[in-house]
Write a protein that binds this DNA or RNA. Structure first.
Length: 748
DNA sequence: AATCGTATCT
DNA sequence: GAGATACGAT
């Protein structure tokens, strides 16, 4: 393969090399595989792992590979030299290399951070921890080392700037933009003609949306967005181009929403069909990223063309691109930003509260401003309703809308959620991807609130967030921490974002997150937790997988469709879910465009398919989907504990597909709300099937008493650990099939 | 000079 | 059609 070919075939793949140091072969192997496999979930990155057994080997390897290693992840307890001693040696010999210390002994966290490790990860390492690891790797690679893209690998060696690694990101205090330009453009400049084309993956787009959300649409300019996104390989031009598209999309949406007519929202009847849109293009077929094949709200569940039910396509959500933008938002409170003119100028918005499309507006309707918001016409855009355009954009850029207005139960979400396990809206936070510091961390919130820090570190624009705090040893406590409610880490983190921006303050939901217990590390929970606590959907969700917050939930609910859809169905009865209601036409809402509106339309069209009767049967619980993607890890990795210094004591049923008993009740209640009687319910059944596939949700008995619909109650209980003694992991781990099945989604 | 917004190109 | 690039404006 020629260089040019290589260039074409591997566009913009960010390569990071991680050294794993662990004396325990199983733990080491798992860690290595988790890291390596994860690359399949994000085509834009490639992880190479160098696994060594102890500190000595690590040091010797570093001597040779120092310039090729971006991050070191080491166990704490190791013979000869422990992880921190290794860290110190590394610092002494190689400078301030980023080191992550992991241990099942969480008491080592403070010590680890104090000694300069950038992060501490409690063992067992879970998939949800990966984002944090990537985050650190990317951060340091970006800050201190050259950006090596696969196509430029051969040039990497002489671009490393050792001095850079001496500094922690915040210490370096260098302009990221310039720095990156300096280092990353270098390689680009050396490749004379070809410049790889950036693909705006879900992940990137979500990050992009987050940036806009955070900054405010009116103030979001390429440079700011870029800074917020903080993705090393992104250029301002990339962002500018994307922003242009996005703005076009927003205009178009506004335009076709009837804004020009001075009316509220006319239900937009989409006619989504499967098609390629950039939304999809960012994902190769191997990717397990969400790929709504149906448009907004057209959940697969409701579609007769749905593929056989499988279980989760998403092993875990760290790569999940679900946006988290408006997790707590309910449609009724959402309004489009009011703009004084067409252009997305930096001119202050006319309406008091909302700064952007993403900002919830709690205030009354601003019908009169509606047209302004759209600012249509001034640009001479087509006055015709270009539904095709909208359709396309909805599928792509439109994601934001979906998220914004959706809650887990919303049809719109469904489609979204259908591909991604944890998400709807909320999950997104948790489901963030590797580079995405903010959210990811979120998911991985631990009692000590590391997650928060990371988030904070991301949001440069966020007041008070500046501290990298927890991530860096020098600022462990950080500001944000102080603001966090002791018992509600999750919330606080959200709170940081939200109160004024997400409208969380008005949402009781925060508490959910708060319910996250120290031991509850799953992203899923967090994510859902972020949803309004009173939202049945969330709780239900959470309740579905008491033992396995993020992951398990995926497991039990079929990914492509069911997960979300069932979600959606749940919602109906609960809550009256705000989101649902919002969606409903009858619901009082902003007269002007709102995300809810969009969804509303969606919702209107959201009709159960008479024929759609999906039954999830064990046989369908394949590890792989039709594309060969791994569906879900059949059990929570967090239950792995190969650390010698800590054994799992509590045994748990091997049955990992449990659903709380009360879920059935809830679901049945839900069904009563469906007059059409055509809702499709999932029969998630482990042992037996419920013969009734319609309007029936056969929920297995839940034997986990810790389940509690109200996150504020009992959720802090430790989740029973999986009794891994039930499995011979050592042997299993030595079998490629097993490990591959766990981590591979790229079956050749 | 940097960066933006937009038009246009690939 | 997604993303890159050109280019005038600020």
């Amino acid at each position: 393969m020629t260089f040019a070919q290589s260039l074409n075939n591997q566009s913009s793949v960010l390569r990071i090399n991680i050294m794993v140091v662990d004396d325990d072969p199983v733990s080491r192997e798992i860690m290595s595989r988790m890291l390596e496999r994860s690359k399949y979930r994000d085509p834009s990155m490639e992880i190479t792992v160098i696994a060594v057994r102890d500190a000595r080997e690590a040091l010797s390897t570093l001597k040779i590979q120092r310039n090729n290693i971006d991050l070191i992840v080491t166990d704490y307890y190791m013979p000869g030299m422990n992880g921190l001693q290794l860290k110190q040696q590394i610092t002494r010999q190689f400078g301030n290399f980023p080191v992550i210390v992991m241990s099942s002994d969480t008491n080592k966290e403070q010590e680890s951070l104090a000694c300069g490790s950038v992060c501490f990860l409690p063992k067992p390492i879970k998939p949800t921890d990966l984002p944090k690891i990537y985050q650190v790797a990317f951060t340091y690679k970006r800050k201190g080392k050259s950006i090596s893209r696969t196509e430029h690998n051969h040039m990497d060696t002489n671009v490393s700037i050792p001095q850079q690694i001496q500094l922690l990101p915040e210490q370096a205090n260098v302009s990221r933009t310039k720095k990156n330009k300096k280092f990353s453009s270098r390689s680009d400049s050396r490749s004379p003609s070809k410049k790889s084309k950036l693909s705006w993956s879900d992940y990137l787009h979500d990050l992009f949306l987050q940036a806009i959300h955070h900054i405010g649409l009116d103030k979001a300019v390429p440079k700011k967005i870029l800074e917020f996104m903080d993705v090393s390989y992104l250029t301002r031009e990339n962002v500018a181009s994307h922003l242009q598209k996005y703005r076009n999309f927003l205009r178009k949406v506004a335009e076709s929403s009837g804004m020009l007519h001075g009316r509220g929202m006319e239900p937009y009847h989409s006619n989504y069909t499967t098609s390629s849109s950039w939304y999809d293009t960012g994902l190769n077929n191997k990717s397990s990223y969400s790929k709504p094949r149906h448009g907004l709200g057209q959940s697969r569940l409701l579609s007769n063309t749905c593929e056989p039910v499988r279980f989760n396509q998403m092993p875990y959500n760290h790569m999940n691109r679900l946006s988290t933008y408006e997790p707590h938002r309910t449609g009724s409170n959402l309004t489009m930003p009011i703009k004084s003119n067409l252009s997305f100028s930096t001119q202050p918005l006319q309406n008091e509260g909302s700064r952007s499309f993403l900002e919830p507006t709690v205030t009354a309707n601003k019908t009169g401003q509606t047209s302004q918001v759209l600012g249509l016409g001034q640009h001479g855009m087509s006055a015709t309703n270009d539904n095709n355009f909208i359709n396309n954009m909805m599928r792509s850029y439109g994601r934001i809308s979906i998220y914004a207005s959706s809650t887990s139960n919303q049809p719109g979400m469904n489609s979204h959620g259908s591909s991604t396990p944890n998400q709807p809206g909320m999950s997104s936070y948790g489901s963030v991807s590797p580079n995405q510091l903010g959210m990811s961390s979120h998911g991985s919130l631990t009692p000590s609130q590391r997650g928060m820090s990371s988030y904070e570190s991301l949001t440069s624009n966020q007041p008070g967030m500046s501290s990298h705090g927890s991530l860096t040893p020098t600022q462990p406590g950080m500001i944000s921490r102080g603001s966090l409610t002791p018992t509600q880490q999750g919330i606080s983190s959200y709170g940081i974002l939200s109160p004024s921006q997400l409208g969380l303050s008005t949402q009781p939901g925060m508490s959910n997150q708060g319910s996250l217990g120290p031991t509850q590390r799953g992203m899923g929970m967090s994510n859902y937790g972020s949803l309004t606590s009173y939202q049945p959907a969330l709780s239900t969700h959470g309740s579905l997988f008491p033992n396995q917050p993020g992951i398990s939930s995926h497991i039990s609910l079929p990914p492509t469709q069911q997960g979300m859809s069932s979600f959606g169905s749940l919602t109906t009865n609960h809550s009256g879910m705000s989101s649902y209601e919002i969606l409903t036409p009858a619901q009082p809402g902003p007269s002007h465009i709102s995300y809810g509106l969009l969804l509303d339309n969606e919702n209107t069209a959201y009709k159960p398919q008479p024929h759609a009767s999906t039954t999830i049967q064990p046989d369908n619980l394949s590890l792989y989907d039709d594309l060969g993607n791994i569906n879900e890890i059949p059990f929570d990795l967090s239950n792995f504990d190969f650390d010698h210094d800590k054994q799992q004591e509590e045994a748990v049923s091997a049955n990992k597909f449990e659903i709380p008993a009360n879920l059935e009740t809830e679901l049945n209640q839900t069904s009563s709300l469906e007059e059409d009687g055509d809702w499709t319910f999932l029969n998630i059944n482990q042992g037996h099937f419920n013969e009734k596939t319609s309007n029936t949700f056969a929920a297995p008995e839940m034997n986990d008493p810790t389940f509690n619909k109200n996150p504020n109650h009992a959720q802090e209980q430790d989740v029973p650990d999986f009794d891994w003694s039930l499995l011979d992991f050592v042997n299993l781990a030595n079998e490629n099939d097993f490990m591959d099945s766990m981590f591979t989604n790229d079956m050749n």
